[in-house]
Amino acid sequence: MKAFIDRLYCMYNFGEERPSAWSSKMQDQSRKAVIVAVCEQEDKRDMGFAMEAMRMPLEALGYQVVGELPVLKTFGKGRVVDNPEVMEEACRLGVLLAKETC
């Protein structure tokens, strides 16, 4: 996600004066996103600001975040598939995202 955000820096318009106003070249393009964060902790508070760290840059660029999925108690590559509730919610959010972008 950080690499994605870093590469979007060129999508900002900055004014000449300092501190400057800024805007996004992607504003008003009806872009939608779903964010997902995975952690091994059992309490969402222990996830820290992972969700906000993804949501805020996307919203600043003009995206509308239509869904969020914090995945807790998951550790190890590929282990998310062992949680049918998470997989069902991920599928639901995928369908929602597809409908929102059509």
Rank of each mutant, 00 (worst) to 15 (best):
R92M: 08
E85S: 09
A98G: 08
Y63D: 10
V34M: 01
M26N: 04
K2F: 14
E68W: 05
T101D: 02
K77C: 05
M56F: 12
E88T: 15
V38N: 08
C39I: 05
K77M: 01
L72W: 06
Y63G: 02
C10P: 08
P57C: 09
S30E: 12
C39P: 10
F49K: 04
M51G: 06
R79W: 06
S20Y: 14
A50I: 06
Y12D: 03
Y12L: 09
P84C: 06
K73P: 01
V34P: 03
E85H: 03
E88C: 12
M47H: 02
V65T: 10
V65C: 14
C10M: 07
C10R: 13
M11W: 11
E59K: 11
G15Q: 01
K44M: 11
G94S: 08
F4E: 03
D6Y: 09
V34T: 01
K2D: 07
N13H: 13
E40L: 13
R55M: 04
A50N: 08
V81I: 11
S23D: 10
M56V: 15
S30P: 13
L8S: 15
M51K: 05
E88L: 12
V86E: 08
R31Q: 13
R92G: 07
L97C: 02
A50M: 09
F49W: 13
R45F: 14
V86Q: 05
D6C: 07
N83Y: 06
